[in-house]
Computed example of a mutant assay.
Amino acid sequence: MRRTVTTLAACGAVLAAAIPAQAVSQDPVRALRAELQPGHGVRFTETATIVEGLEERRAEQSKGAFQFGKKGVTALDVTTIPRPQERQRVIQVGDIGYFCGFPEVLTPKGKTWYRYPRKKYTTAERFWFYGQLLNPAEPATLAALVRNGNRNAGTITGTITFAELRKISPWFGLSVTSTWRGSTTISYTLTLTADDLVSRVQSTYRTPDDAPIYEDWQGMTVHVDSRYSGWGDKISIKAPDPRSVEDKMDLPIFFHTPPPAPCKDA
């Protein structure tokens, strides 16, 4: 009997050693929550491409970072490059957003940034028109993407509607697209690391024919490819120097003005 027990134990040890570590899968949401530590975050880069008919062109490239609190994203710093030699940057800390490099926003001489509280004007309303609408750093959003999708090894593929995102995603709520038709559907693929953290999000959606935007942007297909790295890195995002910020709420906006002061990359 003792010999049999010893033999079984030895076999069990051999089998355990034969199973690759990555085959023991974590819950992606649990893996994310483990990274949500104050003063830490994640970095990302992304490319947005729009397709109109058979014509495809690169729309924008972006890069930046999210800073975490215990429940999710508490700050962001993102630079978008809509055209060569052009930079548009947004920093958001809590409910306050700071814009730099937007030609529609008038800032006085000597000022680089324009400040808006989220309640009056969302940081993302202009900035994230082409950006990634799915934020894998939000536990509720990631849970919905996992629930709606089908997992095959290290990828999860599925669809989610704008109506679903409106209910769960503060990030989506910051986008101008959040007011569009709720039946609009985003197709997505998540790529996971061996630790079940999201390393890539690819998403595609078609702008509704009745979307409240310029008519020539309606009925187009938007592809966004985002790459995430450095989960858990120390990240500290701070508001710009107050001396460079204009915060008078009565300044006119959406008027063409001389090019604003250049923005540095995030």
Results as ranks from 00 to 15, higher is better:
residue 154 G to K: 14
residue 119 K to W: 02
residue 208 P to E: 04
residue 126 R to W: 07
residue 43 R to M: 07
residue 109 K to E: 15
residue 210 D to G: 06
residue 265 D to S: 15
residue 78 V to W: 07
residue 93 V to T: 13
residue 108 P to V: 06
residue 95 D to S: 11
residue 143 A to T: 00
residue 224 V to M: 05
residue 90 V to M: 11
residue 143 A to E: 09
residue 93 V to C: 09
residue 180 W to G: 04
residue 9 A to R: 06
residue 196 D to T: 00
residue 263 C to I: 02
residue 89 R to D: 03
residue 263 C to M: 02
residue 149 G to I: 08
residue 213 I to N: 03
residue 53 G to S: 09
residue 178 S to M: 02
residue 227 R to P: 00
residue 14 V to G: 09
residue 180 W to L: 03
residue 56 E to M: 13
residue 63 K to N: 05
residue 171 W to S: 09
residue 3 R to L: 11
residue 109 K to M: 08
residue 43 R to Q: 12
residue 234 K to Q: 14
residue 175 S to Y: 00
residue 72 G to L: 06
residue 96 I to Q: 11
residue 100 C to W: 03
residue 10 A to E: 08
residue 89 R to M: 04
residue 179 T to Q: 12
residue 129 F to L: 09
residue 52 E to R: 14
residue 116 Y to L: 13
residue 30 R to L: 13
residue 203 S to Y: 00
residue 245 V to Y: 09
residue 16 A to K: 01
residue 73 V to I: 13
residue 177 T to L: 11
residue 135 N to I: 00
residue 29 V to N: 00
residue 83 R to E: 15
residue 28 P to W: 01
residue 167 K to Y: 02
residue 4 T to K: 01
residue 151 R to G: 10
residue 115 R to S: 12
residue 255 F to N: 10
residue 36 L to D: 13
residue 84 P to W: 03
residue 57 R to M: 13
residue 216 D to L: 12
residue 125 E to K: 07
residue 77 D to H: 09
residue 233 D to L: 07
residue 165 L to H: 03
residue 121 Y to K: 07
residue 141 T to R: 13
residue 119 K to S: 12
residue 185 T to H: 07
residue 27 D to S: 08
residue 91 I to M: 02
residue 21 A to D: 11
residue 139 P to Y: 11
residue 216 D to N: 14
residue 73 V to Y: 03
residue 217 W to M: 14
residue 82 P to L: 07
residue 150 N to G: 15
residue 9 A to Y: 00
residue 10 A to I: 07
residue 6 T to V: 13
residue 31 A to H: 04
residue 90 V to F: 09
residue 237 I to R: 12
residue 202 Q to G: 01
residue 115 R to Q: 15
residue 99 F to Q: 10
residue 99 F to I: 03
residue 177 T to A: 12
residue 29 V to S: 02
residue 59 A to S: 11
residue 56 E to T: 15
residue 128 W to R: 08
residue 110 G to S: 06
residue 51 V to Q: 13
residue 41 G to Y: 02
residue 251 L to P: 02
residue 89 R to E: 02
residue 5 V to P: 01
residue 140 A to K: 13
residue 18 A to S: 10
residue 135 N to L: 10
residue 39 G to V: 06
residue 76 L to T: 09
residue 193 T to F: 02
residue 170 P to H: 08
residue 173 G to I: 02
residue 5 V to G: 07
residue 84 P to I: 06
residue 9 A to D: 05
residue 74 T to S: 12
residue 259 P to T: 14
residue 51 V to T: 12
residue 103 P to F: 01
residue 255 F to V: 14
residue 206 R to F: 00
residue 205 Y to C: 01
residue 72 G to C: 11
residue 215 E to L: 14
residue 121 Y to G: 05
residue 231 W to D: 01
